[in-house]
C-alpha cells in the first residue's frame, strides 16, 4: 500500500481544522449521515487507543461532551429543531440537553450575559488535530505502508488488462492494481479521469489560536476549545470564496468578539495567529464513498468532518473496498445520489 501525497504548500484541511469529534446536529436532514456520525463518535475512544499503540502518539481525545452556545434567540430555536430531527433519525439513541442562559450560568458562572442559551451533547469531544494528522502518518509508516511526498498526480488512467497508471507532475509513473482517490480539493481534477461525477468545492473557515494557558477551560464548545497544549482555538466561520485561504480582518475581529461575549475572562488572552483553511465539500456536503462503474478498481472517498469520521476510515472502509462480508453499507453515500 502506497500513499501518494502532494506538495508542502497544498491546501490541506487536515492541517487547518478545529479537531472536533462532533455529533451534535450532524445529519439533521440526512438520516444516513446522522447514523454514520453516531457510529464514528462511538468508535473514537477505541480508535484513539489503537492509533496510540501503533504510532506512539496520544491524540489527546477528550470526549466528555460539548456545548453549542447561542447569542441569538432565533438561531437557538432553529438549532433545537435540528437536534430534534437528528434525535428522530437516531431512533432516540442519543439525548441532548437544552439550557437557558440562566441555567447555563448557574452551571458555568463565567459565561457572559450575552449568551441566551446552549445545547449540550455528552458524546461530543475533541482531539489535537495536528498531532492527529502526524499520528496517522506515523501509523501508516509503522504498519509498513509507504507515504511518498511531492508526488502530485496529474494524470491517471486505467490500463488495458487491469490496474491503473498514474503520472506525477514531475514525470514519475506509478502503477497500481487499485486506486483510491482521496486527494481533498485535489480530487476534482482527477475524478473525471476515473469516471467519477463528484466535483468537490472549497469552503473557507477562519480560526484564531491564542497563547497557551496553564488552566483548563471548564468546557468544550463547537466554536471555542482548548487544545491539550494550552492554546485556545476559536472558529466556526464559513465563506464560499473559492481557493482563497486568507484570514480576514473582519472575521478575525468577529471571532474575537464571539469569544469574549461567551467568556469575558478571555479578553486579556492574546491571539498568536489567525488563519483560514478550506473545507472540502461535496455537492450536498455529505461524504462520498463510491466505486467507479466505468473503471472498476477505482474508488472515491471524500468528506467534510474527516476527524470525526476517521474511525470509520480504517478497517470498515477497507472491508468495503475489498467487498468483504460484514462490510458497512455505504450505499447512501454513493455519488449516484447527485445524478437524480
Amino acid at each position: 500500500m502506497t500513499v501518494l501525497d502532494g506538495e508542502d504548500g497544498d491546501y490541506r484541511a487536515s492541517q487547518g481544522n478545529f479537531g472536533l469529534v462532533w455529533l451534535q446536529g450532524k445529519g439533521a436532514d440526512y438520516a444516513p449521515y446522522a447514523n454514520l456520525s453516531y457510529k464514528a463518535v462511538q468508535q473514537w475512544s477505541h480508535f484513539a487507543s489503537s492509533l496510540q499503540e501503533i504510532s506512539g502518539l496520544d491524540v489527546a481525545l477528550d470526549q466528555s461532551g460539548g456545548f453549542e452556545f447561542f447569542t441569538d434567540d432565533a438561531e437557538f430555536d432553529e438549532f433545537q429543531g435540528l437536534l430534534n430531527a437528528q434525535h428522530r433519525h437516531l431512533d432516540g439513541r442519543v439525548d441532548h440537553d437544552v439550557l437557558s442562559g440562566h441555567e447555563l450560568r448557574k452551571l458555568h458562572p463565567e459565561i457572559g450575559p450575552k449568551v441566551v442559551g446552549a445545547t449540550f451533547c455528552g458524546l461530543d469531544g475533541h482531539v489535537n488535530p495536528l498531532r492527529f494528522l502526524h499520528s496517522l502518518q506515523t501509523a501508516v509508516t509503522n504498519l509498513g505502508g509507504k507515504i511518498l511526498s511531492e508526488m502530485t498526480v496529474s494524470d491517471v488512467e486505467a490500463v488495458l488488462g487491469g490496474g491503473f497508471s498514474m503520472s506525477t507532475i514531475t514525470g514519475t509513473t506509478i502503477n497500481a492494481e487499485r486506486v483510491v482517490l482521496c486527494a481533498g480539493l485535489g480530487s476534482s481534477k482527477l475524478a473525471p479521469q476515473l469516471g467519477f461525477k463528484t466535483i468537490v468545492r472549497a469552503q473557507r473557515g477562519e480560526l484564531l489560536i491564542t497563547e497557551k494557558i496553564g488552566d483548563r477551560l471548564p468546557f468544550l464548545s463547537s466554536t471555542i476549545r482548548q487544545v491539550d497544549e494550552g492554546g485556545i482555538q476559536i472558529g466556526g466561520t464559513k465563506a464560499d470564496v473559492g481557493l482563497d485561504n486568507s484570514e480576514t480582518l473582519e472575521v478575525m475581529c468577529g471571532l474575537a468578539k464571539h469569544a469574549v461575549s461567551v467568556l469575558p475572562m478571555l479578553a486579556d488572552v492574546r491571539v498568536i495567529r489567525a488563519w483560514g483553511a478550506l473545507r472540502v465539500l461535496s455537492p450536498d456536503g455529505y461524504p462520498v464513498y463510491t466505486q467507479s462503474a466505468e473503471k472498476p478498481g477505482a474508488y472515491l472517498v471524500t468528506c467534510h468532518s474527516g476527524v470525526t469520521l476517521a474511525p470509520l476510515h480504517t478497517k470498515g472502509l477497507v472491508d468495503w473496498i475489498e467487498n468483504a462480508s460484514g462490510a458497512p453499507d455505504l450505499e447512501a453515500f454513493d455519488e449516484a445520489r447527485f445524478s437524480i
Partner: peptide, 13 residues
C-alpha cells in the same frame, strides 16, 4: 513560571 493562568487583568472594553 510556566504557562500563564487564564485570568489576567480584564482588558478595557
Amino acid at each position: 513560571n510556566g504557562l500563564r493562568p487564564i485570568s489576567g487583568v480584564q482588558a478595557d472594553d
